[in-house]
Design a protein around this nucleic acid. Sequence first.
DNA 1: TTGTATGCGTTATCAA
DNA 2: TTGATAACGCATACAA
Lengths: 348, 348
Amino acid sequence: MKRKITLKQIAQELDVSISTVSKALRNSAEISDDTKQKVQAFAKLYNYRPNNIALSLKNRRTNTIGIIIPEIVHHFFSNVISGVEHVANKRGYNVIIGLSNESFSKEVINMEMLANGSIDGFILSIAKETQKLQDYHHFNETMSQGMPIVMFDRVVAEINCDKVIVDDFNGAKKAVEKLIKNNCKSIALITTNDYVSVGKLRTQGYLEAFEENGITAEPKLILKIDDTLDNETQLDVLENEIEQLFKSNKSIDGVFAVNELYALLAMKVATKLGLEVPEDVQVIGFTDGVLSKHSTPRLTTVRQHAHRMGEMAAQLLIDKLESEYDTIDEEFQTVVIPTELIERESTK
Amino acid sequence: MKRKITLKQIAQELDVSISTVSKALRNSAEISDDTKQKVQAFAKLYNYRPNNIALSLKNRRTNTIGIIIPEIVHHFFSNVISGVEHVANKRGYNVIIGLSNESFSKEVINMEMLANGSIDGFILSIAKETQKLQDYHHFNETMSQGMPIVMFDRVVAEINCDKVIVDDFNGAKKAVEKLIKNNCKSIALITTNDYVSVGKLRTQGYLEAFEENGITAEPKLILKIDDTLDNETQLDVLENEIEQLFKSNKSIDGVFAVNELYALLAMKVATKLGLEVPEDVQVIGFTDGVLSKHSTPRLTTVRQHAHRMGEMAAQLLIDKLESEYDTIDEEFQTVVIPTELIERESTK
DNA sequence: TTGTATGCGTTATCAA
DNA sequence: TTGATAACGCATACAA
């Protein structure tokens, strides 16, 4: 077991000083060609690579991005990470992940853990609990220490930082308009509680589409699901709620769901109740997920472009990190990623 | 913008030496209660936290685990990461990810990037291209530098390190036995090319189940798919191949697929050809994925326990990292995670 | 009880 | 052309 070789060791072997070795390896003009050759050959032989940690300490930058997300076992978030990683790697950065698990305290702890020198900046999406508690002190604290943050998807107006969001409002609106144009007369909405920012925006898009088309929204057609409990055991509960929605509103001929699972369950329930999709009920979901691609019938969805969001977030962050004049550049931008309606088989 | 405070700054403010501050903060008995109080109060006020990078350099350990996987947008891998993260965090480690994208060179580059001091050890699953090329020098090199590696799922016998694998062979065997017991007479196999280690093992399990039951395997019932091309555009090609399989073997009444997608497509094709699942054809897949949970009918699968694999890999790695006598402990183990047959609606 | 010196691996400044 | 020294932030052996 041979430890990685250091400048010091090379210097000793070659009987020169450490700084000479350092300069030789960086091809400094100060060093004679002779020594350079000698040093470089030796370094190559022993596969010398500068130690990242030492560099980080010296340069006060780690070339590492921290990403904090609520969960990773989720198509949307893993896609975002993939986008972040793509840009980060291309620009010479590593990515370190922290999972909040939708918990406020884990989010805080994770951020503190990483903020102590491990990373140069954060990309994050806020945990549900944090959104609920509306306690954002940890974001402000890290930023006041000069560590930039880019928020994506689940953002919050109170924090002044770069943001990347999906056009939830218009995405939802366009989806509902599509249903209206397709002649749906009774369009249900399956959404989450309002404290989830994206759920709220998508709900507003639904309402706006109604308004612009002179339709009055009926509260009984709106099902708000408490998604603090959306794990496996709750699947039946969920399905049941949706079934009740259908049963007490036989008129329903269109459904807009704010995520993939709700949309799929809506299709399932509809089929179970003897309705055909899309003949009797048309369904649209809001997602990048895989379920919709492989469901029967395949689900029409509003695409979020998660991968692109990740790329954009990474780009914003790294640009900020590498902007020399960080005093001037203290204006933040919010990039809106347009959605795209992917028409598949669950709509006419 | 106030930079994070350092020992040096505290020392200056309080007019004591750096080492006094350091000791006071670690509650050393050497320091008077008076100074301790003073220092600790000040540190608390300014929210002092030791700089991770400096600690890493000093201690020659980063408390960070590197994880290299072929892709992250995949239920199996994101589940593994989640397991790794769970254990790692609990034991005070961070997780940094690198994606090989199934490419050999990206795998090598990523590992080199992280091996230069950024992490203490690797958890990884080998890229398809690497398996194909059978070039494993980068694994041996990192290990010879004293950096431990734990491989999971896609492992390779040539490399001597800790491994965590699914019991692919027996999982597949049990699945096929289940089909046999359920009275299937003509069981097809949809698998990958042999260089994918897990595909190979699952194929062997299929064959073994046949043999033990005195059934002769028919080559024409085995469909090997070139999964270097399994992106979106190839979906139709894939479906077509499976359709041909069914058409040229009308007798098929059972299918075992080595992954989720193949199983789902088999069900889709069967349905399209007028066959009912599970009445006419029974289908079992090999997966932890979400598709199977929400398909119609819901797919019977061999569960891999990806999350547990991640936990186990992290545990093995951290145990190794923290074992004092690393000379003694130079024996490697291979942990086999048992599979579990989840019976759902695609089998009788 | 406190402080000084050293080292982790690197680079940059300045002196030789 | 080369080398000694300091600094990044921290911990610790040793000296005072």
